[in-house]
Amino acid sequence: MSATVLDRLDHLPRRNLTVLALRGISSLVPGGWTNQTSADELIADVLGSDDPELVAQVRSRADALNLSRHEGYRRALSLYDAVNRSQKAAGGLRVLANVAGALPLVKRLATLTPASQTLQAVDLSLKVGAEMLAFTQVNGLPGDSFAAFGASLTEYASEARVRMAALVCFDALLPLGDNALHRLDALLGQVSSHELHQLPSYAGMASLLPGRGDTAHLAFLRRGVDHWLGWADGFVGELGLSGQRAVRALETTLGPWHGGMEQLATFLDAFTDTYAHTGVQAVARRLVERAAAEI
Protein backbone atom coordinates (compact mmCIF):
# COMPACT_ATOMS: atom_id res chain seq x y z
CA MET A 1 0.00 0.00 0.00
CA SER A 2 1.19 3.47 -0.73
CA ALA A 3 2.35 5.87 1.94
CA THR A 4 -0.23 7.82 3.93
CA VAL A 5 -0.95 11.46 3.18
CA LEU A 6 0.87 12.66 6.27
CA ASP A 7 3.93 10.51 5.52
CA ARG A 8 4.03 11.97 2.06
CA LEU A 9 3.75 15.45 3.54
CA ASP A 10 6.75 14.69 5.75
CA HIS A 11 8.76 13.60 2.74
CA LEU A 12 7.99 16.58 0.49
CA PRO A 13 11.11 18.39 -0.67
CA ARG A 14 12.06 21.55 1.20
CA ARG A 15 14.09 23.05 -1.60
CA ASN A 16 14.14 21.92 -5.18
CA LEU A 17 12.98 23.13 -8.58
CA THR A 18 9.30 22.59 -7.72
CA VAL A 19 9.55 24.58 -4.51
CA LEU A 20 11.47 27.36 -6.21
CA ALA A 21 8.94 27.58 -9.04
CA LEU A 22 6.06 27.71 -6.58
CA ARG A 23 7.83 30.31 -4.47
CA GLY A 24 8.37 32.40 -7.58
CA ILE A 25 4.71 32.23 -8.58
CA SER A 26 3.54 32.86 -5.02
CA SER A 27 5.16 36.31 -5.13
CA LEU A 28 2.27 37.25 -7.45
CA VAL A 29 -0.35 36.06 -4.98
CA PRO A 30 -1.19 38.18 -1.93
CA GLY A 31 -0.85 36.21 1.28
CA GLY A 32 2.04 34.24 -0.18
CA TRP A 33 2.71 30.60 0.42
CA THR A 34 4.51 28.62 3.08
CA ASN A 35 6.01 25.33 2.08
CA GLN A 36 4.44 23.13 4.77
CA THR A 37 6.47 19.92 4.92
CA SER A 38 5.97 18.74 8.47
CA ALA A 39 2.83 16.89 9.52
CA ASP A 40 3.41 17.60 13.21
CA GLU A 41 3.71 21.33 12.58
CA LEU A 42 0.55 21.27 10.50
CA ILE A 43 -1.34 19.46 13.26
CA ALA A 44 -0.06 21.87 15.90
CA ASP A 45 -1.10 24.78 13.67
CA VAL A 46 -4.65 23.48 13.22
CA LEU A 47 -5.05 22.43 16.84
CA GLY A 48 -3.48 25.56 18.30
CA SER A 49 -1.49 23.42 20.71
CA ASP A 50 1.66 21.33 20.40
CA ASP A 51 0.90 18.88 23.20
CA PRO A 52 2.66 15.74 21.89
CA GLU A 53 -0.10 13.43 23.10
CA LEU A 54 -2.81 15.35 21.25
CA VAL A 55 -0.66 15.55 18.13
CA ALA A 56 -0.11 11.79 18.21
CA GLN A 57 -3.86 11.22 18.61
CA VAL A 58 -4.67 13.44 15.64
CA ARG A 59 -2.04 11.71 13.61
CA SER A 60 -3.30 8.20 14.27
CA ARG A 61 -6.88 9.30 13.55
CA ALA A 62 -5.74 10.93 10.31
CA ASP A 63 -4.00 7.72 9.27
CA ALA A 64 -7.13 5.69 10.00
CA LEU A 65 -9.23 8.09 7.90
CA ASN A 66 -6.67 7.99 5.16
CA LEU A 67 -6.76 4.19 5.00
CA SER A 68 -10.50 4.01 4.51
CA ARG A 69 -11.63 3.75 0.91
CA HIS A 70 -14.94 5.56 1.34
CA GLU A 71 -13.39 8.71 2.71
CA GLY A 72 -11.80 9.67 -0.59
CA TYR A 73 -8.65 11.37 0.69
CA ARG A 74 -6.50 8.74 -0.98
CA ARG A 75 -8.49 8.90 -4.19
CA ALA A 76 -8.03 12.66 -4.34
CA LEU A 77 -4.29 12.18 -4.03
CA SER A 78 -4.25 9.56 -6.76
CA LEU A 79 -6.03 12.10 -9.00
CA TYR A 80 -3.34 14.69 -8.36
CA ASP A 81 -0.71 12.03 -9.00
CA ALA A 82 -2.29 11.00 -12.28
CA VAL A 83 -2.36 14.59 -13.46
CA ASN A 84 1.21 15.09 -12.38
CA ARG A 85 2.43 11.96 -14.16
CA SER A 86 0.67 12.98 -17.33
CA GLN A 87 2.14 16.45 -17.19
CA LYS A 88 5.63 15.05 -16.80
CA ALA A 89 5.16 12.55 -19.60
CA ALA A 90 3.79 15.15 -21.99
CA GLY A 91 6.49 17.62 -20.98
CA GLY A 92 9.17 14.98 -21.48
CA LEU A 93 7.85 14.23 -24.96
CA ARG A 94 8.00 17.86 -25.89
CA VAL A 95 11.51 18.28 -24.51
CA LEU A 96 12.49 15.28 -26.59
CA ALA A 97 10.84 16.80 -29.63
CA ASN A 98 12.74 20.05 -29.13
CA VAL A 99 16.03 18.21 -28.86
CA ALA A 100 15.24 15.89 -31.76
CA GLY A 101 14.20 18.81 -33.94
CA ALA A 102 17.75 20.13 -33.74
CA LEU A 103 19.37 16.89 -34.91
CA PRO A 104 19.28 16.37 -38.67
CA LEU A 105 18.90 12.59 -38.68
CA VAL A 106 15.99 12.31 -36.28
CA LYS A 107 14.26 15.47 -37.38
CA ARG A 108 11.32 13.50 -38.72
CA LEU A 109 10.62 12.28 -35.19
CA ALA A 110 9.71 15.78 -34.15
CA THR A 111 6.74 15.78 -36.49
CA LEU A 112 5.38 12.72 -34.67
CA THR A 113 4.89 14.54 -31.41
CA PRO A 114 1.30 15.68 -30.92
CA ALA A 115 0.09 19.09 -31.98
CA SER A 116 0.80 21.00 -28.85
CA GLN A 117 -1.89 23.67 -28.57
CA THR A 118 -5.00 21.49 -28.53
CA LEU A 119 -3.20 18.94 -26.42
CA GLN A 120 -2.20 21.65 -24.00
CA ALA A 121 -5.83 22.73 -23.83
CA VAL A 122 -6.97 19.18 -23.06
CA ASP A 123 -4.26 18.86 -20.46
CA LEU A 124 -5.51 22.04 -18.79
CA SER A 125 -9.12 20.85 -18.91
CA LEU A 126 -8.13 17.53 -17.37
CA LYS A 127 -6.38 19.39 -14.58
CA VAL A 128 -9.45 21.50 -13.92
CA GLY A 129 -11.61 18.36 -13.99
CA ALA A 130 -9.24 16.62 -11.59
CA GLU A 131 -9.42 19.63 -9.30
CA MET A 132 -13.22 19.43 -9.15
CA LEU A 133 -13.29 15.68 -8.61
CA ALA A 134 -10.65 15.99 -5.91
CA PHE A 135 -12.73 18.68 -4.21
CA THR A 136 -15.75 16.41 -3.94
CA GLN A 137 -13.60 13.46 -2.87
CA VAL A 138 -11.99 15.41 -0.05
CA ASN A 139 -14.89 17.56 1.09
CA GLY A 140 -18.03 15.73 0.05
CA LEU A 141 -20.78 18.14 -0.96
CA PRO A 142 -20.76 20.61 1.92
CA GLY A 143 -23.75 22.78 2.75
CA ASP A 144 -27.46 22.33 2.17
CA SER A 145 -27.91 24.82 -0.65
CA PHE A 146 -26.20 25.83 -3.85
CA ALA A 147 -25.18 29.09 -2.21
CA ALA A 148 -23.50 27.20 0.64
CA PHE A 149 -21.78 24.88 -1.82
CA GLY A 150 -20.61 27.86 -3.87
CA ALA A 151 -19.23 29.53 -0.76
CA SER A 152 -17.42 26.32 0.07
CA LEU A 153 -15.86 26.18 -3.40
CA THR A 154 -14.74 29.78 -3.19
CA GLU A 155 -13.22 29.12 0.21
CA TYR A 156 -11.32 26.14 -1.18
CA ALA A 157 -10.17 28.08 -4.22
CA SER A 158 -8.82 30.90 -2.09
CA GLU A 159 -6.95 28.36 0.05
CA ALA A 160 -5.52 26.85 -3.12
CA ARG A 161 -4.68 30.24 -4.63
CA VAL A 162 -1.06 29.41 -5.26
CA ARG A 163 -1.91 26.14 -6.99
CA MET A 164 -4.51 27.94 -9.07
CA ALA A 165 -2.01 30.68 -9.94
CA ALA A 166 0.48 27.98 -10.94
CA LEU A 167 -2.19 26.24 -13.00
CA VAL A 168 -3.20 29.44 -14.79
CA CYS A 169 0.39 30.52 -15.44
CA PHE A 170 2.13 27.24 -16.24
CA ASP A 171 -0.67 25.61 -18.20
CA ALA A 172 -2.54 28.47 -19.79
CA LEU A 173 -0.73 31.81 -19.98
CA LEU A 174 2.78 30.57 -20.73
CA PRO A 175 2.06 27.92 -23.39
CA LEU A 176 -1.08 29.41 -24.95
CA GLY A 177 -0.46 33.14 -24.64
CA ASP A 178 -2.17 35.91 -22.71
CA ASN A 179 -5.57 35.40 -24.32
CA ALA A 180 -5.45 31.69 -23.46
CA LEU A 181 -8.58 31.71 -21.36
CA HIS A 182 -10.65 33.18 -24.19
CA ARG A 183 -9.32 30.69 -26.73
CA LEU A 184 -9.70 27.68 -24.51
CA ASP A 185 -13.25 26.79 -25.45
CA ALA A 186 -12.50 26.99 -29.19
CA LEU A 187 -9.41 24.84 -28.71
CA LEU A 188 -11.34 22.25 -26.75
CA GLY A 189 -13.95 22.16 -29.53
CA GLN A 190 -11.31 20.81 -31.91
CA VAL A 191 -10.27 17.94 -29.68
CA SER A 192 -10.93 14.46 -30.98
CA SER A 193 -11.19 11.37 -28.82
CA HIS A 194 -7.95 10.19 -30.42
CA GLU A 195 -6.12 13.17 -28.95
CA LEU A 196 -7.77 12.59 -25.61
CA HIS A 197 -6.27 9.10 -25.52
CA GLN A 198 -2.80 10.46 -26.11
CA LEU A 199 -2.80 11.90 -22.61
CA PRO A 200 -1.77 9.35 -19.99
CA SER A 201 -3.75 11.08 -17.23
CA TYR A 202 -6.97 10.53 -19.15
CA ALA A 203 -6.59 6.78 -18.77
CA GLY A 204 -6.19 7.25 -15.02
CA MET A 205 -9.13 9.61 -14.68
CA ALA A 206 -11.58 8.09 -17.14
CA SER A 207 -13.19 5.84 -14.55
CA LEU A 208 -13.74 8.74 -12.16
CA LEU A 209 -15.28 11.08 -14.74
CA PRO A 210 -19.07 11.00 -14.89
CA GLY A 211 -20.64 9.65 -18.07
CA ARG A 212 -19.66 6.82 -20.36
CA GLY A 213 -17.45 7.18 -23.37
CA ASP A 214 -15.06 9.81 -24.63
CA THR A 215 -17.70 12.20 -25.92
CA ALA A 216 -19.47 12.31 -22.55
CA HIS A 217 -16.15 12.84 -20.79
CA LEU A 218 -15.18 15.60 -23.18
CA ALA A 219 -18.55 17.26 -22.64
CA PHE A 220 -18.03 17.06 -18.86
CA LEU A 221 -14.57 18.53 -19.15
CA ARG A 222 -15.80 21.37 -21.35
CA ARG A 223 -18.61 22.17 -18.93
CA GLY A 224 -16.19 22.04 -16.02
CA VAL A 225 -13.79 24.36 -17.78
CA ASP A 226 -16.66 26.66 -18.66
CA HIS A 227 -17.50 27.10 -14.96
CA TRP A 228 -13.88 27.41 -14.02
CA LEU A 229 -13.21 30.05 -16.69
CA GLY A 230 -15.67 32.43 -15.04
CA TRP A 231 -13.71 32.22 -11.82
CA ALA A 232 -10.26 32.12 -13.48
CA ASP A 233 -11.00 35.24 -15.52
CA GLY A 234 -11.74 37.18 -12.35
CA PHE A 235 -8.65 35.70 -10.69
CA VAL A 236 -6.37 36.71 -13.57
CA GLY A 237 -7.87 40.21 -13.65
CA GLU A 238 -7.63 40.63 -9.89
CA LEU A 239 -3.97 39.62 -9.67
CA GLY A 240 -3.06 41.10 -13.05
CA LEU A 241 -1.50 37.83 -14.20
CA SER A 242 0.16 37.63 -17.59
CA GLY A 243 2.82 35.53 -19.24
CA GLN A 244 5.40 38.31 -18.88
CA ARG A 245 4.72 38.77 -15.19
CA ALA A 246 4.86 35.03 -14.60
CA VAL A 247 8.25 34.81 -16.30
CA ARG A 248 9.56 37.72 -14.26
CA ALA A 249 8.27 36.20 -11.03
CA LEU A 250 9.87 32.85 -11.86
CA GLU A 251 13.16 34.54 -12.72
CA THR A 252 13.43 35.88 -9.18
CA THR A 253 13.83 32.34 -7.85
CA LEU A 254 14.91 30.19 -10.80
CA GLY A 255 17.41 32.58 -12.34
CA PRO A 256 17.38 34.29 -15.75
CA TRP A 257 15.56 32.61 -18.62
CA HIS A 258 16.54 33.31 -22.22
CA GLY A 259 14.16 31.06 -24.14
CA GLY A 260 10.57 31.61 -25.17
CA MET A 261 7.55 31.31 -22.92
CA GLU A 262 6.46 28.07 -24.50
CA GLN A 263 9.83 26.49 -23.80
CA LEU A 264 9.64 27.67 -20.21
CA ALA A 265 6.24 25.98 -19.88
CA THR A 266 7.64 22.77 -21.38
CA PHE A 267 10.61 22.90 -19.05
CA LEU A 268 8.38 23.40 -16.00
CA ASP A 269 6.04 20.61 -17.11
CA ALA A 270 8.88 18.17 -17.54
CA PHE A 271 10.91 18.92 -14.45
CA THR A 272 8.59 20.10 -11.67
CA ASP A 273 5.86 18.41 -9.61
CA THR A 274 3.83 21.48 -8.67
CA TYR A 275 0.55 19.62 -8.83
CA ALA A 276 1.42 16.68 -6.63
CA HIS A 277 3.32 18.95 -4.23
CA THR A 278 0.52 21.42 -3.54
CA GLY A 279 -2.05 18.63 -3.79
CA VAL A 280 -0.50 16.70 -0.91
CA GLN A 281 -0.40 19.88 1.17
CA ALA A 282 -4.03 20.75 0.48
CA VAL A 283 -5.37 17.25 1.17
CA ALA A 284 -3.25 16.93 4.31
CA ARG A 285 -4.67 20.17 5.71
CA ARG A 286 -8.29 19.11 5.22
CA LEU A 287 -7.52 15.65 6.59
CA VAL A 288 -5.91 17.09 9.70
CA GLU A 289 -8.80 19.53 10.21
CA ARG A 290 -11.15 16.58 10.22
CA ALA A 291 -8.99 14.37 12.43
CA ALA A 292 -8.55 17.19 14.95
CA ALA A 293 -12.32 17.55 15.14
CA GLU A 294 -12.86 13.84 15.68
CA ILE A 295 -10.31 12.90 18.34
Binding site: G140, P142, A148
Partner: peptide, 30 residues
Protein backbone atom coordinates in the same frame (compact mmCIF):
# COMPACT_ATOMS: atom_id res chain seq x y z
CA UNK B 1 -19.41 36.86 10.56
CA UNK B 2 -19.80 34.15 7.97
CA UNK B 3 -20.20 30.41 8.28
CA UNK B 4 -18.63 28.47 5.43
CA UNK B 5 -19.19 24.73 5.30
CA UNK B 6 -15.98 22.97 4.34
CA UNK B 7 -16.48 19.23 4.71
CA UNK B 8 -19.47 16.97 4.80
CA UNK B 9 -19.07 13.22 4.96
CA UNK B 10 -20.89 10.31 6.52
CA UNK B 11 -20.88 10.99 10.26
CA UNK B 12 -19.12 14.32 9.98
CA UNK B 13 -19.75 17.92 9.12
CA UNK B 14 -17.41 20.87 9.48
CA UNK B 15 -17.64 24.59 8.94
CA UNK B 16 -15.35 27.57 9.31
CA UNK B 17 -16.45 30.63 11.17
CA UNK B 18 -14.99 33.64 9.41
CA UNK B 19 -14.81 37.26 10.47
CA UNK B 20 -13.99 39.29 7.38
CA UNK B 21 -11.38 37.19 5.61
CA UNK B 22 -9.92 35.65 8.78
CA UNK B 23 -10.85 32.19 9.96
CA UNK B 24 -11.80 32.53 13.63
CA UNK B 25 -12.78 28.96 14.45
CA UNK B 26 -13.42 25.49 13.09
CA UNK B 27 -16.84 24.20 14.11
CA UNK B 28 -17.69 20.56 13.69
CA UNK B 29 -20.13 17.83 14.62
CA UNK B 30 -19.03 14.22 14.36
Amino acid sequence: EQLVFTQEKRGFSQARLKRGSDVVALLSIS
